[in-house]
Write a protein that binds this DNA or RNA. Structure first.
Length: 432
RNA sequence: GCCGGGGUAGGGUAGGUGGUCAUCCUACAGGACUGUGGAUCCUGUGACUCGGGUUCGAAUCUCGGCUCCGGCCCCA
């Protein structure tokens, strides 16, 4: 009987795991530097938590199941809904703003492809109860810092404010279902398709060429902060969009103060779901194939959707696996030092017990150390130690031991030094 | 769910018009070498993705499953 990994899952071996941990720690450092604290929620949740947020349709992309008590549960497909639930359950009375972050795996039943797995990891944050351009600017700044810290220099942050387009819809009194339909088309990012949907043979919104024209121009606006005035010009006749535009302008000013320059305003960025009303942003890294989006975020009001009070939240989630792809693609993997730097080798059977003692002494002195556990011959031990790439090998032999000594061999230079047993730790510390 | 391309020892591969013992590199284990690694040599371990079909005979042809890769759909 042979067992295989479930489809769309991966095993991580030592080297890859170390690279992932390195990236993970880098992100933790950045997030904590911004004052965010880590939380953890369960891997599975009530199925309704996700269907309430995203609709019944998502069930066929979930790993859902009934437990023995008949409860409908599911492995989480994302972590923002659990965070909102956590907030409702435990943190409603906490001082605002609340800044939290999380790292963990999510599960989706989807067709695996490059950058897409059935178990994948998300690293994300939420800033709860601070709806303001500065809250949004800080979150975007942290996203930018994260990408910089990881060395992903080719990332582009694209920022939009959905209030502008929502304002236009409101001005023209477009119903919600139609809004959703249009947002979905915008979200696809296909200009031709959008053109067809707006001004083609069978447009989604009929008899409103003014709105269609404005929309088409609007979603085409991409560029640095200088395009704000173009946007302003375009939407100034529609007062319902003005507040959002003001917020957008403030965000741009505040991003400058937060020293974020690596971003674009992109009026074509949308998100499929209704609860995004304010700013949204997405980060793309070219060269990652079809799954180039490494981050999605924005301001939304999920808590209200789940029956809580009206509290806005700004956050983003990084697709950790895609970040790892990007790092790999950019050749930014770090050279990691060997796991251990010292090996203790008994030269003969009679000195083996002494070798264990010395090993423990070194470990107690915080020197990562390995010792032979398979009774290999001395030559094989050295050969093995060489493969581990250790710096020092402590040779424990009878002749030296009679004098209370061992020989420490430097594996890079090949030089050897006779050292008293009690001084080994100190000697090795000075020779790493 | 759909389209296309792959799956040969632990890793990387050759073979492919059906027919000796399925090739080589590497890895791993042992030895040459009982207190000295990296080199060399020798020996050993270890594979045709699974199932059906065609055939005297299938790694090879054929159909299907599984799975991997790329793309579509979707992307909370």
């Amino acid at each position: 009987m042979e067992f295989e990994r479930p489809r769309g899952t991966r095993d991580f071996l030592f080297e890859e795991m170390r690279q992932r941990k390195e990236a993970e720690n880098t992100l933790r450092r950045v997030f904590e530097n911004y004052g965010f604290g880590e939380v953890q929620t369960p891997l599975f949740e009530d199925l309704k938590l996700f269907t309430t947020k995203s609709g019944e349709e998502i069930v066929d992309q979930l790993y859902n199941f009934k437990d023995k008590g008949g409860r409908d549960l599911t492995l989480r497909p994302e972590i923002t809904a659990p965070i909102s639930r956590l907030y409702l359950n435990e943190m409603q009375k906490s001082a605002k703003p609340i800044k939290l972050y999380y790292y963990g795996s999510c599960f989706r039943y989807e067709r695996p492809q490059k950058g897409r797995f059935r178990q994948f990891w998300q690293f994300g944050c939420e800033l709860i109860g601070a709806k303001s351009p500065e809250g949004e600017a800080e979150v975007i700044a942290m996203c930018n810092s994260s990408l910089e810290a990881l060395g992903i220099t080719t990332a582009e942050i694209n920022v939009n404010h959905l209030g502008i387009i929502r304002g236009l819809f409101k001005h023209f009194d477009i119903d919600e279902a139609t809004q959703r339909e249009i947002m979905i088309v915008i979200d696809k990012g296909d200009k031709e398709l959008l053109k067809e949907s707006l001004i083609g043979e069978n447009p989604i919104i009929k008899d409103n060429s003014e709105l269609n024209e404005v929309l088409l121009k609007l979603i085409d606006m991409v560029g640095d902060s200088s395009i704000i005035k173009d946007i302003e010009e375009l939407v100034s006749p529609y007062e319902e969009a003005r507040d959002a535009l003001e917020e957008f302008k403030e965000l741009v000013d505040t991003l400058k103060s937060f020293q974020v320059t690596n971003y674009k305003l992109n009026l074509g960025v949308a998100r499929g779901l209704d609860y995004y009303t304010g700013i949204v942003f997405e980060v793309y890294v070219q060269g990652l194939g079809a799954q180039k989006q490494v981050c999605g975020g924005g301001t939304y009001n999920l808590v209200k959707l789940f029956g809580g009070e009206d509290v806005a939240s700004t956050g983003f989630a990084l697709g950790f696996d895609r970040l790892m792809n990007a790092i790999e693609e950019l050749g930014g993997k770090k050279e990691l030092p060997p796991m251990v730097n010292t090996y203790v080798a008994a030269i003969s059977d009679s000195t083996r017990q002494k070798a264990f003692e010395i090993t423990q002494n070194l470990r107690n002195a915080d020197i990562p150390t390995e010792v032979d556990l398979s009774r290999k011959k001395f030559k094989k031990i050295l050969s093995y130690a060489n493969k581990l790439n250790v710096k020092n090998v402590v040779l424990v032999g009878e002749r030296d031991l009679e004098e209370g000594n061992v020989t420490v061999k430097d594996m890079e230079s090949g030089e050897q030094e006779i050292v008293a047993v009690e001084d080994v730790a100190e000697y090795i510390k000075s020779n790493l």
